[in-house]
Write a protein that binds this DNA or RNA. Structure first.
Lengths: 217, 217
DNA sequence: ACCGATTACTGAACGGTGTTCAATATATTT
DNA sequence: AAATATATTGAACACCGTTCAGTAATCGGT
């Protein structure tokens, strides 16, 4: 039964994204079902095609929302960080992945079918995350550094991402690593140091995972 | 029509893995179809369940084979490397991912359904890759290094993996990076240097991608 | 050489998926 | 009030992975 005036098109999209987000977090991308989401929202199957073009379109929208939640976590950590803002960033990166592993891996597991790629709007929404990191890296490096800050910042995101990816996927390489997040942070510090970052002796007051990591690694 | 003596069970598994490998490389994990593989091999649908337990089991076997091909690429690069063996490793890591992006991402996109995890046999087959890296890292660091070589080596694999992952998935962070592989290598060198690795001045004779990268990054 | 027991394989049935699209119910305009 | 335009449905379709009774091929014992 069509209930045309219950919601605007945007409200309806928000409903599907919200319910889809919950469903994705529960069952993961492999078992994600657009039909199930439609059933939960109380609309029929075909509505997804109307609103998002396809189930892939819905997943793109859900993932973009994940990016925004993720970026907000980073901002929260930065705000409550006392001194070590780099550690706060790494912490925030891992925090989202570990508290919502299905949402996190869906971001990287989902691939658009050949042909179409990400809508510009979604690209913009997702860029916020790297922007936060870029700003912090720029702050922490000397003003006259020889590094290309934008490229270095994104490369450091990749460094952290690699560790995080291995943790979430339970992958071969880091199975026996007791402190992957500490390892990621150590690598980031080493690269930053190579470009003029003064470590400011965080060795004493950073988290225990880190201090435990420093001696041996 | 059962053709019982055409192949031994192992031969038949090899047939499915081979054909499945080709199919996966063509269409990617999202569109992978066990039915299609069975059709290509010339056996019926249910045979996959007999041989591998489920389609997931077949994919696990295919991915383990990918690991072996990948490890062989690393060994080849090392063998033909003149001096810079670290660069050769990074190059091999990227080479497989870029020449077979679907196979590479299937390794990380595939997740076993809740409950069962990787058979021991597959874990062993996949560990070969990291072993190669560990051996090289150990060689290149001073004998009296303070680093835990095993943990550092795996962390460096994660560093390269992160860059590679962003490249293959076309992800937001490295879209405008002209030389992701060079960036990965630069990060690895920086971390190795922090643990006593003497760079031996590769600046002059390494690939141009690397030299172009060094000045600005 | 034959015959029962065992194994390999089939293929139809089942419940699920995403997409499509004629039909319908609701808004909007004239 | 009538005509037009839009939103939503839901059945049909083709595909997916899993299951399992049934059948064909081989093996082991006599």
């Amino acid at each position: 039964m069509g209930r045309r005036s219950d919601h605007t098109r945007e409200e309806l999209r928000a409903l599907f994204i919200g319910e889809g987000h919950a469903h994705l977090a529960q069952v993961g991308l492999a078992k994600f079902s657009g039909r199930e989401v439609a059933k939960r929202v109380g609309y029929s199957v075909g509505t997804i095609s109307n609103l998002f073009g396809s189930v892939d379109g819905l997943i793109v929208a859900i993932n973009s929302r994940s990016f925004e939640l993720w970026a907000q976590i980073l901002r929260d950590r930065l705000e409550s960080a006392t001194d070590d803002r780099i550690a706060a960033l790494v912490d925030g990166y891992f925090a989202f992945a570990e508290q919502s592993p299905e949402l996190w891996s869906a971001i990287y597991a989902h691939r658009l079918p050949e042909g179409l790629d990400l809508p510009e709007e979604d690209k913009a929404r997702r860029a916020g995350l790297t922007q936060i990191v870029e700003d912090e890296i720029r702050t922490v490096l000397p003003a006259d550094t020889d590094a290309d800050v934008v490229r270095l910042a994104r490369s450091l995101v990749a460094v952290v991402h690699g560790h995080c990816s291995f943790v979430v996927s339970g992958s071969f390489a880091l199975l026996e690593e007791p402190d992957p997040q500490g390892a990621a942070l150590a690598r980031v510090r080493e690269s930053l140091a190579a470009h003029g970052y003064c470590a400011e002796d965080f060795r004493s007051d950073s988290g225990l995972g880190d201090s435990e990591n420093r001696g041996s690694l």
